[in-house]
Simulated scan of single mutants.
Amino acid sequence: MDHNNDENLHRVRITARGGKAAIEIDGQRVDPGALSGHTVTHREGEPPQVVLYPGDYAESTFEGLTRISLADMPAPGPAAAVFLSAIDAEELERSALARPDLGTGPHSLTQAMLTQLVEWASGL
């Protein structure tokens, strides 16, 4: 099969360094703020496929003809439910009360707990 004549193929250039990537499709730069990630896969005998995730990358470079797909982002609810169900309420309260940024105003404990949950979810 001659993939060079396939009208579904696009010229792609991806230059990634650290947490940033510059992506061009058919010579047009993709707004970096529009994407949260990408994957490049390739099977023998087929052109590479780039999947763009709407919405940060290890250092890499890819340039060539590829099929491009736009991925649907999964709903965050189920993953959040799993994360939150694993939280020990006593440990959350203890950690929030021990935070140096715990305020004294209304809702300050709730804010400290939410900040703590964000840090735990981020691996901090």
Rank of each mutant, 00 (worst) to 15 (best):
M1Q: 12
M1R: 11
D2K: 08
D2R: 12
H3K: 06
N4D: 13
N4C: 10
N5P: 03
N8G: 15
R11G: 04
V12S: 09
R13L: 15
I14K: 06
I14C: 07
T15G: 09
R17Y: 13
R17W: 11
G18N: 13
G19C: 09
A22W: 10
E24I: 01
D26M: 04
G27E: 05
G27T: 10
G27R: 10
G27A: 09
Q28C: 07
R29C: 04
V30E: 12
V30L: 15
D31F: 08
A34F: 09
L35T: 07
L35C: 03
H38V: 07
H42L: 01
R43Q: 14
R43N: 11
R43T: 14
E44H: 02
E46Q: 14
P47Y: 01
P47F: 02
P47M: 07
P48E: 00
Q49K: 15
V50G: 02
L52G: 05
L52I: 05
L52P: 04
Y53M: 08
P54A: 12
P54G: 13
G55Q: 06
G55S: 06
D56P: 03
Y57Q: 11
Y57G: 07
Y57A: 12
Y57H: 13
A58E: 14
A58D: 14
S60A: 12
T61A: 14
F62T: 00
E63M: 05
E63D: 02
G64W: 00
L65T: 08
T66D: 01
R67L: 15
R67G: 12
R67I: 13
I68M: 11
S69N: 14
L70A: 08
L70H: 10
A71L: 03
M73A: 07
M73C: 03
M73S: 06
P74D: 02
P74S: 01
A75H: 06
A75W: 02
G77W: 03
P78W: 00
A79C: 01
A80T: 04
A80D: 04
A80L: 12
A81V: 06
A81F: 03
V82Y: 00
V82Q: 01
V82P: 00
L84F: 10
S85Y: 01
A86F: 06
I87M: 11
D88R: 10
E90K: 14
E90C: 07
E91A: 15
L92W: 11
R94Y: 08
S95P: 04
A98S: 09
R99A: 12
P100W: 01
L102D: 00
L102G: 00
L102V: 00
L102E: 00
G105C: 02
P106T: 13
H107E: 05
L109K: 13
T110I: 04
T110Q: 10
T110A: 12
T110P: 00
Q111R: 13
Q111D: 10
Q111S: 09
E119L: 12
E119P: 00
A121W: 10
A121E: 08
S122N: 13
S122G: 12
